[in-house]
């Protein structure tokens, strides 16, 4: 362990703002990317299910 308390950990030896903004931006972009991919897949699968139901109705 390189830090003895939380303040030291957040300060990062004076580089805190640089280190945490880098990690924060990376986390944001990754979360946004996977979130949008997941949401698009969810929407597409819902549409496919709706088409399937419509076809069932049409064939009746």
């Amino acid at each position: 362990m390189q830090f003895t308390n939380f303040e030291q950990f957040f300060a990062m030896g004076g580089y805190g703002a640089y280190v945490w903004s880098s990690f924060g931006i990376t986390a944001l972009l990754l979360i946004w990317n996977s979130g949008i991919a997941k949401y698009r897949e969810f929407r597409m699968r819902r549409e496919v299910k709706q088409w399937q139901l419509q076809e069932k109705d049409d064939s009746r």
Partner: peptide, 24 residues
Amino acid sequence: GLLFAPPDYQQGHGFRIIYVHVPA
């Protein structure tokens, strides 16, 4: 990377940016 890796002898704790920069 954030807690246990030793600080760099030139860049101190600032070098930890490497753990997102190089993989990306």
